[in-house]
Design a protein around this nucleic acid. Structure first.
Lengths: 338, 338
DNA sequence: ATGAAAGCGCTAACAG
DNA sequence: CTGTTAGCGCTTTCAT
């Protein structure tokens, strides 16, 4: 009954051609006469033939995989990066092999090792903090490596990111210009949330430059930091620093959570408490009042990374010429801050 | 310089053992003496050896892939299903190969074909509506097929889902019991959003059973339906049917969007307008007021699917015995409805 | 516990 | 435009 699935050889036999011709018929541009190709594709469909990538991958010593690691799949920002990345790469005939690290660099190391076994053509990783062994694995892999969402000090290969520190500076500047002085920062306290930690560091540095008190820091614990953590942080902020005028949150999600806590306590936003978020999530644009935030270009990071990988694989850059593409985060001022 | 990457044969040569012994050393339980194994693993690390799955996959005629298709990666519900599925499968040594269909069954067909070329051990697809050719491809693949998130009338293989129709019935019953009569439904009008369409159909059927008017239907267009679409729908609802008492939305996201529109127009929720959502998203639990919703067990669908696949691959069911796992959606009554 | 031989299904390389 | 040969790096199978 359940015979072995047909191979190219079976198709070849049924039509009296060589397997090589069948192979060529499945490639786009290769030299096969139109009628032979059509006959082959028809026979394939009739036999229920399914092309075997595993064999093609082994023989040609290349796959059409691009490995991608993200901290969490449940995050609208990373999801948008992945979506655009997948769309861009599919145009180059490349498919994403996705894994998530759960914000843990040891998990990331395991994941990278596992992904490299699949022989991807390139690997995209989120962030710039990795274990030594992970760095070594990536360096030895002799495929393009792209670090994203940050600007690492010692990049492994290519970079498509932005400065999280600089982004928060812009927001602090905006808040100070708007007239706020007693400003808090919520989140970014977990060492494994490197982007959050940089945002917090950016806050502290910027506040000091303005000669302002940078000690109104509320902890949100380990990532992922969602709406609940934002609400909890606002709760703590109002108790510990009741005279705070504005709170900058590590992301729009926590800012929205903070907003709901204000609504529950009848704290008016922005009159009693101004809010700033990060990431330009949908929710920040639609909630009432809408959130002042930073557009970090999540989608563009994915799109540009896809372009970069296509170009590198096409040999458009000299061997070893690592590219760094840096976005300038843009402040989006909305009604949550005056 | 850039020598060819080392193979098992290289490791074998460097230690004076056979490649077969090296191969065995990389398997867990196989019969290799402790010291030989350690020597091999050490040599591998020193040589910078990376196991080549493509070769192993071809020779053993099996991969450790499970193919998964979801409509969109930017959806917290599907993301949660995928997360739990990935976690469960990784315990069985299986990795997810993810693709998204963008709510298009032709795109789904292309995707399924592409995924099957990778020779996955099983395939999980969202929904029960597929092209004829997709159904054929799946049937011919002779691997376990699991349809999720619905209860298809003619399943292709296994099913892990729930009745979208029944779920909305529960909500209509609740709203009617609470005293609402002039109830609207927003979304679910796009033919390619089968789950949404079933929810809308469930609304119409349930309303009629209660002898109530089921014509307050607002279109939200093609999926994905997010917060913006919810706000727009509420705007339209208030203009077309200003005396509406309650609106049931196709998801929590659109319900939240609707809520924001009410806030902008000073329509009190639930006093002037009650709201119901779907999916038990984080946002519905934390917004003010929190949303009455349906827990559709997004995470559990993933977890149970992982278990099912592990069991089927372990031969725990007789050949051809298709399993159907059905969840009972549970109403979560919150303050957005009285 | 270890080894030798063979081959998975495709395609690179070369020939015509 | 089409065919022949060989082999990608593993693991199955059988032997010791």
């Amino acid at each position: 009954m359940n015979r072995k699935p047909p191979t190219m050889a079976d198709i070849a036999k049924s039509l009296g051609v060589s397997p090589m011709t069948v192979s060529r018929a499945f490639k786009r541009d290769s030299a096969v006469s139109q009628e032979t190709r059509e006959a082959i594709l028809l026979a394939a469909e009739e036999l229920g033939y399914v092309f075997d990538s595993t064999a093609a991958n082994l023989r040609s010593q290349k796959t059409d995989f691009v490995a991608v690691t993200i901290p969490s799949i449940n995050n609208a920002n990373f999801a948008e990066t992945v979506r655009q990345l997948a769309d861009g790469l599919s145009r180059a005939g490349l498919q994403i092999l996705l894994g998530y690290t759960n914000y843990d660099i040891h998990e990331e190391e395991r994941l990278i090792e596992q992904l490299l076994r699949r022989k991807p053509q390139a690997i995209v990783i989120t962030g710039g903090q990795h274990t030594e062994r992970a760095r070594k694995l990536l360096s030895n892999a002799s495929i393009p490596v792209v670090e994203t969402w940050e600007l690492p000090e010692k990049p492994i290969g290519h970079v498509v990111g932005f400065s999280n520190t600089q982004a928060i500076r812009e927001m602090v500047d905006h808040f100070v210009e708007t007239g706020y002085r007693r400003i808090a920062f919520m989140g970014g306290d977990a060492a494994n949330d490197t982007r959050g930690a940089e945002r917090r560091a950016g806050f502290v540095a910027a506040m000091r430059e303005h000669g302002l008190d940078a000690t109104r820091l509320i902890s949100s614990g380990a990532p992922p930091i969602g709406m609940r953590e934002g609400a909890k942080a606002m709760s703590e902020l109002l108790e510990r620093f009741p005279d705070t005028q504005a709170a900058i949150c590590v992301s729009d999600l926590s800012a929205f959570g903070a907003l709901t806590e204000c609504q529950r306590r009848n704290v008016r936003v922005p009159e009693d408490m101004a809010l700033g978020g990060f990431g330009n999530y949908d929710i920040g644009a639609i909630c009432v009042p809408p959130l002042t935030t930073i557009n970090a270009f999540a989608g563009d990071i994915g799109a540009r990374t896809a372009e970069l990988i296509s170009d590198v694989l096409d040999g458009k850059f000299p061997q070893g010429a690592m590219q760094t593409i840096s976005f300038n985060p843009v402040l989006i001022a909305r009604e949550s801050s005056r």
